[in-house]
Amino acid sequence: MRLAKKRPTDAPLLQVRDLSVVFPAQRGNPPLAAVKGVSFDIAPGQTLGLVGQSGSGKTTTGRAILQLQKVHQGSVELLGEDLTKMSSSNLRRMRRHMQFVLQNPYSSLHPRMTIAQTLTEPLRVHRSVPPSQMRERVAELLELVNMDPAVMHRYPNAFSGGQRQRIVIARALAVNPDFVVCDEPVSALDVRTQAQIVTLLRSLQDKLGLSYLFIAHDLAIVREVAHKVAVMFGGRIVEMGNASQVYDTPAHPYTQMLLNAVPIPDPIIQRKRLRLTPPEFRFSADEDHDGPCSHGENHVRTGTAPWHQIADGHGISCRYWPPTS
């Protein structure tokens, strides 16, 4: 059940252009630009991994795409419709196409609603299932995430973190969305549970043709799920490409630094890695410095975006490139 509007079949499901988010000034602190001109596409059935350290703006980007955070500038087109310019009632209608899986499964379920109540809420909101079939649909959803439908009348406190995250995923899938933002969906879980949830998310993608924006600080997890990867730093995407391009041939020094810092569960390799002294990077964060970038191009003068295509589908920002001197 797509929107009536005709779309070319090869069009991306989600198209984010020049997205910026500014947190207003608060208690003497100046306004903070959390996301600065982020652009990317997500194709149907594909996963974009968004990685970066805390404060890089990755979570804010996810919330801004879902319009849970006020967008300062730019556009977010889902299924060809710009969410940033939508009325709130249209937006609520659009929410059945886009869903959210939050980080903490302990806090993202209403503690005083049973699993059945939690799972029927989106169904009621979007009137996607007649009341007589609600129960059936809830059972179906629980089976979809490999849980016993008999648990539907229990409260969240009866479940472990991994089980709760399954329920959260079931809620997100209740209305048959096309696109799900997963914000650190496994970082609160134990390693074996992480692996199970990642496997579940991937099998659901194959089964239902879902697109994911997979936000995580854990680069190793992202490698397991993402087709494309975008690396964020200071509110900007500094490198983006296919997973193998970014992980195997990282071009931006920031990406290289991140990848080198990830511990590898192999004593011999990891010991060597720890012995290496990490290089110190000095990013030229200067907004509109008038001079050639690291690629010798003056973006201010030529009026082009500070972005360099280094291979097919693989690009880096030169804004944070260390000065060549």
Binding site: R92, R95, F100, L102, L109, H110, R112, R171
Partner: peptide
């Protein structure tokens, strides 16, 4: 989070207040 989660599902503001915040 659970309020944010409900909002992202498309729950109306009134229901958010009465069902998800008030209890």
């Amino acid at each position: 989070d659970h309020v944010e989660a409900a909002r992202s599902v498309g729950v109306s503001e009134l229901r958010l207040v009465l069902r998800h915040v008030l209890p």
